[in-house]
Design a protein around this nucleic acid. Structure first.
Lengths: 330, 330
DNA sequence: TCCGTTAATACAACCGGTTGCAGCAGGCTG
DNA sequence: CAGCCTGCTGCAACCGGTTGTATTAACGGA
């Protein structure tokens, strides 16, 4: 069916190895032979079979990118930049979605293992030990997680969370609540730790709840807890949850930001167009995608190196309309 | 390095073919042999090499999914449902982003060709003839495009566009404008045709502009044309453009929906949380993803069939806050 | 003129599996 | 007990490339 290297060899009157070298090491074949081979290849419409090549060379020129939920607007910009940068470097990216399921994550890695040269794990839900174990077989880069011995791209959500607490405290809020993310989220942990410290420094109360589903629904459900605790300042795990929380509060007749202030995380398009426009911690998703691919290609090039380089990217608090002084200060 | 079928064979004291059959046709090997092989495989941590298997069988159990722009919120729900349904059917999906570039689309198809059993093209920018030509080598399913001889999933945007025109006309708008999408978009063509017919029936004026970039920026730029034409009712190619148009109008001091009404398409999360909440033509993206994979697997199973089944899915106009009677009727 | 080099190509084994066919043992039938 | 069938396993070729080595021809120098 498909035209193979042998068809080309026959048509050009040379041995298959000559055809192979014409494509993989052109300088080893005489100019006119090369031209004859290329002509025959073009004539027949030959395309090298990437999979077969991978079998002998062990190089697929494919990368895997595993995310928890493509539909979460945090991921697409990261995926897009990773993909376009990888393309520039001659690699194709295979994206897979785990649906926030650690077991699916593990299975996907196993399936991808032989078809890619390395994998980027974005906000993995797997345990550190599981990841470390899997990384014996395949180069990995993790994003938003610090695993000993593995290269990582980290977004400095700690300073972002601290800035959010200071922002709210500065507005006059005394009772804050942090809506944590899903179980196993490194980002959520960092946020909690750093927000707690910042609250202590600022002398305000901070209650932490969770785990929550990192979705609008999760935020909606958390709204009750906010009201129950009497918090007037809320930091949600991500923009989606923040939007859901605002909806949930509206359902109870509580208005944002007049009565309660809400801060999101990720600064996604959803937050930017939301009503009210979301104050949010902006994550450098595009840089992260690019950096992750960059680190991964380094790790692939020097597998011995086992460089565990960590790249930390800055975040920033973008203040919009969902935060304001608490009602008692009006 | 990696453990192969031969390592397992040696450990279990059988021939490689027996190991192979243990995994691909278990009923052909005696129960206790099978157990011995499985034990050895487990012991060594053997995992069949999917790529090698594909080389002989020609079956990769991978599907390709090519989209124009992952960051456009229209695509992620479709990708997600396609992926999860494919997983159920035992297939892995490789997603690739073309950046709205027809040439990248063609190149991606070529790269994917040998690594997948079939490809779903979502809202392709390639010409019909180019697609038809490529489909000789590989099963294809197209979404939002009708290509002769190929299975397709179509979203009935025609009736949606007509409903939008009727909605605006019903509110009293007399001058409408349709902001078309990118060059080569089938959806855009359908919308234009159907909206023009509906406008004629309703006795209102409809001006069509385009092509436009299907992004917020594209919408922002189109706002000037809206004002220039004096239209009070706008239908944008998608939610992103609608949001951009609203921003652009606001920049000129024109308020939506008080002075101009805007209808989006796709009913994405961005539109739902936008201020004002977007009236939009809801696209059945999740069903589309699932249906596309379903058709593709059919096409793969019976390559002879060449069934060109077209599945058409309903759309619906969701009326929210971005449409209202025109100012002269207030 | 002869020999050592070098450049270009052919040969063949290999990557990790699959699969048609052959061989062998055991059980059943007559 | 011969003959046949059936069930299980081994053998070897093959999928589409790559690559180390052998082979051959051409060339330059002594």
């Amino acid at each position: 069916m498909a035209v193979t290297i042998r068809d080309v060899a026959r048509a050009a009157g040379v041995h298959v190895s000559t055809v192979s070298r014409t494509f993989s090491a052109p300088n080893l074949v005489k100019v006119d032979t090369r031209e004859r081979v290329l002509a025959a290849a073009a004539e027949l419409g030959y395309r090298p079979n990437q999979a077969a090549r991978a079998l002998t060379t062990g190089v697929t020129h494919n990368l895997g990118l595993i995310v928890a939920d493509i539909a979460n607007p945090f991921f697409p910009p990261l995926i897009k930049s990773a993909q376009s940068y990888a393309r520039v470097r001659g690699y194709q990216v295979f994206v897979a979605d785990t649906d926030e399921d650690p077991r699916a994550e593990e299975e996907l890695i196993a399936i991808l293992a032989k078809q890619v040269d390395g994998v980027v794990l974005v906000s993995p839900r797997l345990s550190n030990t599981a990841i470390a174990q899997l990384s014996a077989d395949l180069p990995f880069v993790v994003v938003n997680r610090s695993v000993k011995g593995l290269p990582a791209v980290l977004m400095d959500v700690s300073s972002g969370a601290a800035a959010a607490v200071e922002h709210l405290a500065g507005l006059g809020h005394r009772r804050l609540m942090l809506l944590g993310g899903p179980r196993g989220s490194w980002t959520s942990e960092q946020m909690c730790r750093s927000a707690a410290a910042a609250a202590e420094r600022a002398g305000v109360a901070l209650e932490i709840t969770g785990p929550n589903a990192p979705t609008e629904r999760g935020g909606q459900q958390a709204a009750a807890a906010v009201l129950g605790a009497g918090a007037t300042g809320v930091i949600a795990y991500n923009d989606l949850m923040a939007i859901g929380t605002i909806e949930g509060l509206a359902g109870s007749g509580v208005e944002v930001p007049r009565e309660v202030s809400v801060v999101g995380v990720d600064d996604t398009i959803a937050g930017r167009v939301n009503r009210p426009k979301l104050t949010s911690i902006a994550m450098p998703t595009q840089e992260a995608g690019r950096s992750a691919v960059d680190l991964l290609l380094h790790a692939i090039d020097l597998p011995a190196g086992r460089s565990a380089a960590k790249t930390t990217l800055e975040t920033s608090l973008v203040i919009r309309e969902s935060t304001a002084p608490p009602p008692d200060l009006k």
